[in-house]
């Protein structure tokens, strides 16, 4: 299973280039081509790259955007300084947290709603009367492609309840690129269950209130998730880091940012501190423990 998530986008500016006197700064950002938000849309990747490069040029800088197939390779390039900033999925981050903390700093992520943290719902059709995690057995489920967090959540629940990982008890897992499709799969009886974010659920219910009658929320996760974690090499110039967060704060004022925000459907960029990482760290540690136990 892919444990690569999230995405990123981002922008900004970093490092001033002393080598090339034509630019005030030069920096390289690394993104995962799969397992993140950007992995869902090829067009999005192209758009984000073009936008970031244009923004940097507007600020007399040069920004290189690179996409990596695996978190390991990306992190390796971050460590050795080929990449100044990298976006990693949470699974990889918590697995390698100790090493990562030694080489990186200035963590950030995207807020997908008003309260920074996301929450997942496990839903089923009301008419099917599926009300517990145990009912997942021999059922089909829809999950979002490249969203390791939702998979981790339902997998952990299965491990806790059924003492088995989710893949072993389910009849089929259907991955979809869009969360709305996941929900509709249950609505239109394509699958028995699906895991969607609270944001998607609320949006879909708002669009079609009859969903509340036809679908049932079987289980809700804690509200502790964010889509990925971005981090800077500790050796990266502090001015570049400061510039990144300043621009992040004023993101809505940058030309073209509105289209990128609408495309990736996030609200804002925020700094991730140790305290906000703590619940997720506990959560992931428990999950890693359960995985080991019921492997």
């Amino acid at each position: 299973m892919k444990k690569k998530f999230i995405f990123i986008l981002l922008l900004i500016i970093t490092t001033l280039s002393f080598a090339d006197k034509n630019y005030k700064f030069e920096s390289t950002f690394g993104f995962l081509s799969s397992g993140t938000l950007l992995s869902s849309f090829k067009d999005a990747r192209v758009a984000v790259r073009a936008w970031l490069e244009d923004v940097s040029l507007d600020y007399d800088g040069k920004l290189n955007v690179e996409f990596y197939e695996s978190s390991e390779v990306l992190y390796k390039n971050l460590k050795n300084g080929n990449v100044d900033m990298a976006v990693l999925d949470l699974n990889f981050f918590f697995k390698n947290k100790k090493d990562i903390e030694l080489n990186t700093a200035n963590y950030w992520s995207l807020s997908m709603n008003d309260t920074k943290y996301s929450q997942y719902y496990l839903i089923s059709r009301t008419s099917d009367n599926l009300k517990t995690i145990k009912d997942l057995k021999n059922r089909t489920i829809s999950l979002k492609e490249a969203d390791n967090a939702s998979f981790t959540w339902i997998d952990k629940n299965s491990l806790q309840t059924n003492k088995k990982d989710i893949e072993s008890i389910l009849k089929k897992i259907k991955y979809e690129k869009k969360e709305s499709t996941i929900l509709l799969n249950v609505f239109f009886k394509k699958t028995d269950f699906s895991v969607v974010s609270k944001k998607t659920w609320d949006t879909m219910v708002e669009l079609n209130p009859s969903i509340l009658k036809k679908l049932t929320v079987v289980k809700k996760s804690e509200k502790i998730y964010f889509p990925f974690i971005g981090l800077f090499n500790k050796k990266a110039a502090q001015s570049s880091v400061a510039a990144f967060f300043n621009l992040s704060r004023d993101l809505t004022n940058i030309e073209g940012s509105e289209q990128i925000i609408n495309m990736l459907k996030f609200n804002s960029i925020f700094r991730v501190n140790e305290q906000s990482l703590r619940p997720l760290e506990i959560y992931y540690n428990e999950y890693f423990e359960l995985k080991k136990r019921y492997k």
Binding site: K178, S180, T181, L184, F187, F188, K190, L207
Partner: peptide, 10 residues
Amino acid sequence: DEIKILEFVY
């Protein structure tokens, strides 16, 4: 495939 129709039309 109502989902595809719905999503596309939406």
